[in-house]
Computed example of a mutant assay.
Amino acid sequence: MLTILGVLVLIALVWWLVHGRAAEQRGNRRPTATVGIATAASGSIPITIEALGTVTPLATVTVRPQVSGNIVDIAFKEGQTVSKGQVLLSIDPRPFQLALQQAQGSLARDEAQLRVAQLTLQRYQTLVSQDSIARQDFDTQAATVRQLTGVVATDQAAVGTAKLNLDYSQVKAPIAGRVGLRVVDLGNYVTPGDAAGVAVIAAVTPIDVEFTAPQDDLPRIQARLAKGDAPAVTVLDRTRTQVLGQGQFLTLDNVIDPTTGTVKAKARFANADARLFPSQFVNVRVLLDTLNNAIVVPSAALRSGPRGDFVYVVGADRKASLRMVKRGPASGDSVSIAQGLRAGEKVVISGGDQLTDGAEVRLPEDAAKGGVGAQQGERRGGRRSAQ
């Protein structure tokens, strides 16, 4: 009886080991994952610097009057674009006109006195040569001529100053640019010491954008600048959806910020359409180089693990193979693969979170065709179970 019982227990144990373990393994087997794929292609990928920048006008000038007086005319509008030398406003010119007439009168009087003194000196020259007058009289007359010459020179300077003040009564734009909001009104009394001035002009065509560049990119930037091949620079709005301008890299600062490892840089833009506004925050993209004939895949295909970067490559047998790769430069939603992948190979870009090396996968078109891949997997699984 014990022998029969032992045989039955042994048979039951063997059955469980064969059929129960297989059933357990089938229950633990992961279902076939549906993944999205993309084809690795050969193409060009730009090598760029991305940075935040601030729009900076070439010059910002607070226009202040050079003389004091009441404003009698304002010749500009707020927000107007003005040219260099254009009259912005006029100060009452009458005091300066009178001062000019007075200076011109003094000059005419002193010039007449000088002319008389010069003629007298010429006569004294003749008389002293004939020993008809004392030498002292001649010397005194020569000193009078020199004195009156100095007076005339002073009068000429006074006339020039009066003319300059009269010209200053018309306040002109020192640079070309866009005028800001008006800070004075008709009839206001203004002086050269007014801190706010009468207007603020910003030079906006062309205009600069200041940003920072990583110190690791300095050798490449400097090499291109030395050859006269300035990198192209694009500025975009804060949402990176609209291009605001295309320009050229201008210059680098002369020191690296040790706290950030970056250096200040500047690019210049024509800004003919005035889309760049002073003190505006923008996104800057500097095109350093273009990598040609690169293997390019979507950024979603590249994954990272303890051993480094890798992708899942899907073969014709619908199996995903883990492939270690070496990443290259990236641009937007694409990344180049420097090593480990060939053009034309298909890589997983979605649904690969639960994949393992060698796992079977389903493609979206399989599901559209009624789950061909799943049916094949079930048949293969059924055959294994039957075996």
Rank of each mutant, 00 (worst) to 15 (best):
I74D: 00
I74A: 01
I74W: 00
A75K: 07
A75Q: 14
F76R: 02
F76C: 03
K77Y: 07
E78I: 03
E78P: 00
G79F: 01
G79H: 04
V82E: 01
S83Q: 11
K84G: 08
K84N: 06
K84F: 06
K84Q: 11
K84D: 03
G85S: 06
Q86E: 09
Q86P: 01
V87P: 08
L88F: 02
L88T: 00
L89R: 01
L89M: 06
L89G: 00
I91L: 04
I91R: 00
D92G: 03
P93A: 03
P93W: 00
R94V: 07
R94D: 11
P95Q: 00
P95H: 00
F96P: 04
F96R: 01
Q97I: 04
L98S: 14
L98I: 09
A99M: 06
L100T: 02
L100C: 07
L100V: 04
Q101F: 14
Q101V: 10
Q102A: 13
A103M: 07
A103K: 05
Q104P: 07
Q104A: 12
Q104E: 11
Q104D: 07
G105R: 15
G105W: 13
G105P: 09
S106F: 10
S106Y: 15
L107S: 14
A108I: 13
R109T: 15
R109L: 11
D110H: 15
E111M: 14
A112H: 04
A112Y: 05
A112S: 05
A112K: 05
Q113E: 07
Q113F: 08
L114E: 15
L114C: 09
R115N: 15
A117M: 05
A117R: 02
A117I: 05
Q118C: 09
Q118K: 07
L119M: 14
L119K: 10
T120L: 10
L121H: 11
L121E: 10
L121Y: 05
Q122C: 10
Q122I: 08
Y124A: 05
Y124G: 05
Q125R: 12
Q125N: 07
Q125E: 08
Q125T: 10
T126K: 10
T126R: 14
T126S: 15
L127P: 04
L127H: 05
L127M: 09
L127D: 04
V128H: 12
V128G: 07
